[in-house]
């Protein structure tokens, strides 16, 4: 075993676990044999002889995935769009709400981090608003905005603002005084100091907040789209549940996971870029 690197051994284990898991899943479903014994007339009338709608085996999910992914962008009417289009709608909403939140949270976080008066003045509001489940805003948003699309974006906005705001404030407040003194002894103005010293010093903390936010936004969009309907991966899951198409439900659950992982990885990359060792 020592011949293989740690990463290779881990990869072998991952693949082995995947194969075992899929096999157990596949076998446990084909074991649910249909009752083929003698049936009474009553049983035949109530449909006991037909196969139950059960959880599909992985092989069916794989076939479904192949179908969907080989033509992800087809559009055959409001209730029949390709998975790529649905995910595209969700990502569009997440990114719109997320960047609106960033535009407000990062400058406001700077202000709170630099001024303890601003921090103390705004802290009570933040503490009350932050623990509210983003979906609780939905009825109010729908009533005020009167547009389901914009309401979904608002919900993303409100859920992704807090980690970015608090992390920016925390990062900015924690910038070492020595570095600020370096800026002061070099007569840098407020803006120059903010961009050349405070921002790079606080960047790792800020990006951590951004990474937490994008994760939360992706969690929330699925639930929000189940409520507002129309398009998006959340709507797709719920629609396929109403169609009792569990194969599509499982497939879309997996897609949600994959997209979430990719979003997180993108911010992980950004995090590595701004990291520094003291």
């Amino acid at each position: 075993m020592e011949l293989l690197s740690e990463n290779k051994r881990a990869a072998i284990w991952s693949i082995a676990l995947l194969i075992v898991g899929l096999l157990v899943w596949e076998l446990s479903i084909s074991a649910q044999a249909v009752n083929t014994g003698e049936l009474t007339e009553y049983e035949l009338l109530t449909g006991a002889g037909t196969a139950k709608a059960g959880v599909p085996p992985p092989s069916e999910v794989a076939v479904k995935a192949w179908q969907e992914l080989s033509n992800p962008f087809y559009d055959a009417g409001p209730n029949d769009k390709g998975i790529g289009i649905q995910i595209g709608y969700s990502i569009y909403r997440v990114l719109t709400g997320y960047f609106l939140a960033a535009i407000i949270a990062i400058p406001l976080g700077f202000l709170i981090g630099m001024s303890s008066v601003a921090y103390k003045a705004l802290n009570p509001f933040i503490q009350v608003l932050r623990p509210i489940s983003p979906l609780a805003w939905m009825p109010l948003a729908l009533f005020i905005i009167q547009d389901s699309e914009a309401s979904a974006i608002f919900v993303i906005f409100i859920c992704s603002i807090w980690p970015m705001l608090l992390n920016t404030a925390f990062g900015v407040a924690g910038v070492r005084e020595d570095w600020v003194n370096v800026a002061r002894t070099h007569e840098l103005g407020a803006f120059k100091t903010a961009f050349t010293v405070v921002l790079p010093a606080a960047a790792p903390t800020i990006v951590t907040g951004m990474r937490i936010s994008i994760g939360i936004a992706w969690l929330v969009i699925v639930a929000a789209e189940m409520l507002v309907g129309g398009t998006g991966i959340g709507y797709y899951v719920w629609n396929e549940w109403n169609n009792l198409d569990l194969t599509s439900v499982i497939f879309s659950i997996l897609m949600i996971g994959v997209v979430g992982m990719l979003l997180d990885a993108a911010f992980g990359l950004l995090q590595r870029r701004v990291a520094y060792v003291e």
Partner: peptide, 18 residues
């Protein structure tokens, strides 16, 4: 106030680590 006319070398170097 601080000024570029008065340079400072701090004990802990105060280099910007990034």
């Amino acid at each position: 106030g601080p000024s570029l006319d008065r340079g400072v070398v701090f004990q802990n170097y105060s280099l910007l680590p990034w």
